[in-house]
C-alpha cells in the first residue's frame, strides 16, 4: 500500500457496468511521512468516502478490486483507509 492526498475527482458515466456507483478520486502519492508529494497523480476508486484534501492509504494492482466484491471491476488503485496520524 501507499499514502496519498486526495487532490481531485473524476466523473465518468460511461464505464464498465460493474463500476456503476463508484467514486473516482485523483490522488497525489506522498512519501512515507505523508508530507512531500512523489511521482505523478493517479486515479483510484474510493471505498472509504474520502474527500478533497484527505490523506489516505490505497492499494494497487488487482487487489484494488477486492473492496467492491463485484465481478468485472477492472481497477488498479483503490482507497482502503484514512490516515489519522503517522509516527516515524
Amino acid at each position: 500500500m501507499n499514502i496519498a492526498k486526495v487532490i481531485g475527482r473524476v466523473w465518468a458515466t460511461q464505464k464498465l457496468p460493474d463500476l456503476e456507483g463508484l467514486k473516482f478520486l485523483v490522488l497525489q502519492p506522498m512519501e512515507g511521512t505523508g508530507e512531500a508529494p512523489v511521482g505523478d497523480f493517479i486515479v483510484a476508486a474510493d471505498s472509504q468516502q474520502a474527500g478533497p484534501g484527505d490523506v489516505v492509504f490505497y492499494v494497487t494492482s488487482k487487489e484494488a478490486s477486492f473492496p467492491f466484491e463485484r465481478k468485472y471491476t477492472a481497477l488498479d488503485a483503490a482507497i482502503v483507509g484514512h490516515v489519522d496520524r503517522i509516527d516515524t
Binding site: R9, W11, Q14, L16, K71, Y72, L75
Partner: peptide
C-alpha cells in the same frame, strides 16, 4: 477483469470514458 479481456493476454484496458475532471 472485464467481460471481453478475461483470460486474455491483455495488461491495459480502457474501463471508463471521462465526462469531467476536477482538480
Amino acid at each position: 477483469m472485464t467481460p471481453i479481456t478475461q483470460d486474455k493476454p491483455v495488461d491495459t484496458v480502457i474501463m471508463a470514458i471521462v465526462d469531467q475532471v476536477d482538480f
